[in-house]
Design a protein around this nucleic acid. Structure first.
Lengths: 196, 196
DNA sequence: ACAGTCCCGGACCGATCGGTCCATGATTAA
DNA sequence: TTAATCATGGACCGATCGGTCCGGGACTGT
């Protein structure tokens, strides 16, 4: 077998770890398990990720990239910020209700690392802080009457959506969430609060 | 020292375990730690809770009782089902934004035990299923136009509230959540969809 | 005072954790 | 072909996990 490039190896380990962490939770997955699933030597994993904390952090950064990618895709697929907000909720609804999904990986890992000093905790907090700011900006560009309020409401819906989807799947409140988001956006972006 | 009654001992262990589990997560807390914090012998814990799974299950059942208690209290403190729905959201908002709170204990533990066969997983699923049914019933008694829809929306808000409060505390979307719930209830219980 | 009951807490068990080190074998460049 | 490089995977380490067992001391009823 040809020798694999270091970048490929790192990617393979990270993808494997992400799958296992996502499926079973970080604490429940041992490094030995990741090594076996990735089919690499023990040295290699420790060369790329000197400790489990580093690996977990890399895993969470990858999850953050997924969110950023979602923002980009929905921006490209819609014409207005208002439409994009709904598209984001729709994209997350699909993801959160997929079979076997366990909710937001960053939220789950946040729950596993309560210590504020832990890097995983910090990455998760950074993510949600950034996410909230981005939703506020998006609401502002959508000319919402109260951008903060709209952003926060969308954030509540998204966070609720993840939990609900993890438990009930498509039989849950996902469908309700999309219509919910549409109404909330519409109510905040119409020229009057009176709905005819 | 006077000998303690068995019921008191059990309660003391359970309260101690609940605090530690809630603060640090189930996987992160060892039984030795609980024993030391509760100030009891090792035998005693294993007499009351033959395994950690049993203890975790008892912890989650206690959390479910807290929810049931919240339902009772809000029912007693309000005059109409519509008011009760808002009161429930308000009560959870206070709880979820308290300093040091880490979100919904059942939701967090659900994240830690992904295996469907695990009793902790099952208790959590039962809780959310029951909770959703209760919110549907409450919405029905509030004469909502679409009780399922209103119940699901409130559930999204509550689930989102827990996550948001765990991360941002009172600086988060909690205040927005209460007004949000009020509007959602009002829109579903007015005689017309036209808001003056 | 005595015998019996109960509880604290430490010794101990096998398993597994994160992490280190190295022998072996395969692949590469020269 | 030879020498150097690199990945594999097992041996090993100390710590900690859930769980069992038991010694010794404090309390009880008689």
């Amino acid at each position: 077998m040809a020798r694999r490039a270091a970048a490929d190896t790192r990617e393979r380990i990270l993808v494997t770890a992400a799958r296992l962490f996502g499926d079973k939770g970080v604490h429940a997955v041992g490094l030995q398990q990741i090594i076996e699933a990735a089919g690499c030597g023990k040295n290699l994993l420790y060369r790329e990720f000197p400790s489990k904390d580093v690996l977990v952090t890399a895993y969470l950064e990858r999850c953050r990239e997924d969110w950023t990618e979602t923002l980009r895709e929905t921006a490209a697929a819609t014409n207005t910020p208002a439409e994009q907000i709904v598209a984001v909720v729709k994209a997350i609804a699909e993801r959160a209700t997929a079979p076997g999904t366990r909710g937001c990986a960053l939220r789950n890992t946040f729950a596993e690392f309560p210590e504020q000093s832990h890097p995983a905790h910090q990455v998760a907090v950074e993510h949600f802080t950034q996410m909230r700011r981005q939703l506020h900006e998006l609401a502002q560009r959508a000319d919402a009457h109260d951008p903060q309020l709209l952003g926060d409401r969308i954030m509540l819906i998204i966070d609720g959506l993840y939990t609900n989807g993890a438990i009930f799947g498509t039989a849950g409140a996902a469908a309700a969430a999309i219509a919910f988001a549409e109404e909330v956006v519409a109510a905040q972006t119409t020229t009057s609060t009176v709905v005819a």
